[in-house]
Each structure stands twice: as structure tokens, then as C-alpha cells.
Amino acid sequence: MLFQREGGLQVQVRSTIAALQTLASPSLEVELVDPNRQRIDGYDVIHVFSAINGNYRLVELAHELDLPVVLSALLSPGWNRAAGLRARIADRLVGRLTDWNVQTSYAQTRRALQLAQLVVALGPAERMALIDAFNTDPSKIRLLPNGISPHFFDADAGAFRRHSGLAGAFVLMVGAISPYKNQLGLVRALAAYEFPIVLIGHAQRQHQPYLQQLLASPKVRWMGQLQHDDPLLASAYAAASVLALPSQGEVFPLSVLEALAAGTPVVMTDESALSLPSSGFALKQLRWRDTAMLCRAINDFVAAPPQRAEVRALVSAFSWQRVASQIADCYTQLNRRRERVSHAV
């Protein structure tokens, strides 16, 4: 299912691979594995993206083959110590009721995290979730954020202005159209203001009624889905007065990083692994249900926007090349460890 949809995970996988392939390292070859056509025992190290959706089976197989695994966890930001305790209790109850023939998704995720040699967390918040909710060994966790493609830093607002016909202030939201993303909360929060709300993202069939509810507002403009490398997407970030992302939860949202790279301030949910020091002048994180605070924060940015150069500076170090170099170090470390064990045997 990985590439049957488009979103942040797909961008992360493709961008990571592309950046790794550009590294000047003759000892490193990287490719995307097709598990339906290729066996994983032909590789020295595998990198699994996401600890959920059945991926624990790949990690289990690699463990049986003594094949080192780097696992990018991509955990929901809602996991904490209390949630982990409740999940373990529920897991034991399910096991006893089904004579241990049924596993919870928590148990599968935890097993993947336990068997992986290195676990990648996108930020400090996700690292704490891994430790507190899943009892992951802290010594094998590496903090490696997502990167940002260079063209977002150079984005020009003109193309989107010409395409949309919008000349003044507007609020942008980029993401799948769904109640979880909470576009309707944004529309309701800004009901008293005149500036348009531009939505970019795909609406699945089950969310078409939700989309129609959004489009009932004369202020809403839906642009459909734009590909990640479409210059119009980068231009939309640069043209917007504010990017809003009041969803119920985000792991490490690329849309936020890309908007900041384009110099645009952001108002988003506080249910996220994203943490940028000294970013309060351009990044507001608040409870996703708090429409009053959402409205106030957006209006403040529209009325007094921060300097775009200062906003860009917040994420200037987030390049895919830098991230790829750190990931490559992880691969090398695991491969050398495996070779030492093989020689010892």
C-alpha cells in the first residue's frame, strides 16, 4: 500500500533514497526493495519506514536472517506513558480472551521496535514516546529529522498569485481532506474574517461529503492535490500569509517545514513531534480543538507577519543531504557490527 497513496511518508521515503544515492560514497548502494519480487537476504542492512501497518513482519524476518534493521518509527504523537500502560493492559486482555491467537497493533509495533537494531525518531517528543509508551532502549534511538527540498527555500509567490487570482492575504492548509485534519475547524475559527482559505490536498471517496461541507463556505478555495515537486505547491507556500495545520495529530509534518522554508509562519496542532527552539515568533503550536486560540494566532500573523528571512533561518539546517549523511552513518555502523560478529563466529 505504500505508494498507492501520496503524503508525507511517501515524500520522506523517496527523498531519503534520492539523497542517499547522491552521496559520494563508493561503499554505499541504496535501492527501494520490492518485497513482492526481491528477497531481503541479499542486502547488508534494511531500512523500514513506519513501525505500524504490519511492518513488524519485515523486521521479524530480518531478525531471523541476522540482517540489521534501521526502523523509522513514525509514531503518532499521542503516545505517552499512560497510553502505553493502557495499551499493554488491553493487549493482555485480548490475549487471554483469544487464547493468544489475536495480537493488538500495539504489540506488533512494540515487537518491531524491540527487534530493530537502530530506531529513528524525528524529534525529542517522538523519542520520549518511544521510551515511555513502548519501553524502547534509549541507547538505540537516533534523532534524525526530516529534510526539506531546496526548491522550497527559493519559492516565489508570483506563480500561485497568477494561477489563483489571489492578490491579498490568505490562509493555506496543505494535507488530506478529512475530519482528522480538521479543515472544518479552521473554517469555523475564521468565520468572522474575510480573507480566503486555500486548501490543497486529496479527498478520498468517504470524505467527499466533508469536502462539500467545506466548499459550502464562499471563502474556501480547493486546489485539489498538487505533487510534491510541483512548483505551484512551493509557490503557494510562499504566497500564503499563514499555513494552518490544526489536525488532531502530526508526527513531523513536512508541510510545516516547507512553509517555514518558504518564509511563511505556521499555526499548528501541539500534538506533534516537531520542536524548533526559539521559533515562537513564526510557529504557534496549540490544542487542535481551541478555535479561539487558532483564530487569534492566525490573525496576529496576518496583521504583523514576521520577516521571511528570519522564518527561513529556523529550518536552514534541514537539508536532505545532511539527513542522508547521518542515515548512511547508521547503515555503516550496523554493517560493521554485523561483520565483526561474523568474523568472531
Results as ranks from 00 to 15, higher is better:
L245T: 05
L215C: 06
V187T: 14
Q307S: 04
V102H: 02
F3C: 00
A112T: 01
V251G: 13
A191E: 11
V256K: 14
V70A: 07
A273T: 11
R162P: 00
A125P: 02
I141D: 01
T269R: 05
L214I: 08
I141S: 07
G249A: 12
R5E: 05
L276Q: 05
R96K: 06
N299Y: 07
H163M: 09
L122I: 12
R340K: 03
S27C: 02
A324Q: 02
R57K: 11
T22D: 14
Q103T: 12
Q285D: 12
R296C: 00
Q212P: 05
R81E: 14
L199N: 01
R338G: 05
R14P: 00
Q10V: 11
F170Y: 05
Q204W: 11
I327R: 01
R142H: 11
A116W: 10
L184K: 10
S76N: 07
R37Y: 13
L166M: 10
H228W: 06
F318G: 03
L172N: 13
S76A: 07
T104K: 12
V94E: 06
I141F: 12
A157F: 15
D230K: 14
D66W: 05
P68N: 03
A282N: 12
L215K: 01
A189E: 11
Q108C: 08
Q208H: 11
A262L: 15
S325G: 06
W288H: 04
V13S: 10
I131S: 02
D229Q: 15
L115I: 11
A73E: 07
D44N: 14
E271H: 12
R287S: 02
L32K: 04
T22C: 15
S139R: 14
Q213M: 12
R37Q: 14
D99Y: 03
S15T: 08
L85H: 13
V251C: 15
E126D: 14
D91S: 09
V69Y: 00
S72Y: 02
R111S: 13
H163F: 09
V311R: 06
M173D: 00
L184T: 09
C295E: 06
V302L: 15
L243M: 10
G201N: 03
S149C: 13
E310F: 12
V256W: 06
